[in-house]
């Protein structure tokens, strides 16, 4: 028995399978719908929170940007989700039940009010009507914002897809970091440089979180970490990290120059998108190859024996 266990320890593990056919089903979700949905959710969440705080701390420009981005991204994310459904006309079936065991149910119940609130707030922002109500609604959306940023990580992790499931501890922080950099990125892109300090700080926090989380994720799960490091996905994630770091550095350099700041924002956004697409594809890769199922499970079985 131990023989097989030993074999399983080496990275290019020998393992038995049924003609090399996948054991698991690849996620049925389509690209770009779902990675976009992940990205937009984070962007919307961080933007809503940022708008709420901008409102409270009296930064109308940031508030305006945050509100509009949150609403736009939220409704786009709903659009992506609906578009991905096999039977789009039955979107509302999501709201038939409340199921804590289903991150998608929880997410829907978050997304629905969140997108409603952000849309209303954005309308108020644009028309200038009902400012008091808008502030309250904005605060509510801002409070939901962080949930919007991270629940999507549970959405992925709560599957049998090895790369996603095994990374369930790191993914929330990765997505949290990504949300912060994206939120920051949108602001950097749109706001005058002199108002961008909170966004710059938000970006740095996000960059730190993201880099730390991915470092852990890419090392600590044995063979299951492999899809994050290798192949096309590995390259995509590397580019994403590079863009994020670039965003952080440029935002510091762009304190005075609007275009540098804007480039930093764009880099953040692109980095966040790369990260979501990369993580999404890592899941697909890990579902496609039976070794990511057999080897860790064998190790687990042999270890427990």
């Amino acid at each position: 028995m131990s023989k097989r266990g030993e074999r399983a320890m080496v990275p290019d593990a020998e393992f038995r399978s049924y003609y090399g056919r996948p054991i698991l089903k690849e996620p049925a979700w389509k690209t770009p719908d779902v990675p976009a949905y992940l990205f937009l959710g984070g962007l919307a969440g961080a933007s809503a929170s940022s708008a709420a705080l901008a409102d409270v701390t009296g930064r109308p420009a940031l508030r305006r940007i945050g509100r509009l981005v949150a609403a736009g991204a939220a409704s786009a994310s709903v659009g992506a989700l609906v578009h991905d459904l096999g039977v789009p006309t039955r979107f509302l079936n999501m709201l038939r039940v409340v199921k804590p065991t289903s991150p998608l149910s929880v997410g829907s119940w978050v997304l629905a009010p969140f997108s409603g609130l952000t849309a209303g707030v954005a309308a108020a922002e644009l028309t200038g009507r009902l400012p008091r109500l808008a502030r309250l609604a904005g605060l509510a959306a801002g409070a939901l914002g962080p949930v919007m940023c991270t629940y999507t990580s549970v959405l992925l992790a709560d599957t049998a897809t090895p790369a996603w499931h095994e990374a369930y501890r790191e993914l929330p922080f990765l997505f949290a970091g990504g949300a912060l950099t994206s939120g920051a990125g949108a602001t950097l892109l749109a706001a005058p440089v002199d108002q961008c300090a909170p966004a710059r700080r938000m970006g740095w926090v996000g960059t730190g979180l993201e880099l730390a989380a991915s470092a852990v994720m890419e090392r600590s799960h044995g063979i299951t970490s492999e899809p994050y490091r290798t192949g096309r996905v590995g390259r995509l994630l590397r580019v994403g990290q590079g863009l994020t770091v670039a965003g952080g550095v440029l935002s510091a350099l762009g304190r005075r120059r609007r275009w540098v700041s804007a480039v930093a924002g764009a880099a953040y956004l692109a980095g966040g998108a790369c990260m979501r697409f990369g993580v999404f594809d890592a899941g697909r890769v890990s579902a496609r190859d039976p070794k990511y199922v057999v080897v860790p499970q064998r190790e687990r079985l042999n270890g427990s024996r």
Partner: peptide
């Protein structure tokens, strides 16, 4: 997979709080 769901939610919760804290810290500066 849902065997680990409570832990997932916990991690996501902490991460959400981290976001909240991160945003707040950025604005409190």
């Amino acid at each position: 997979t849902t065997r680990d769901l409570p832990s997932m939610w916990k991690h996501a919760g902490v991460a959400a709080l981290t976001v909240a804290a991160g945003v707040a810290a950025s604005f409190l500066g």
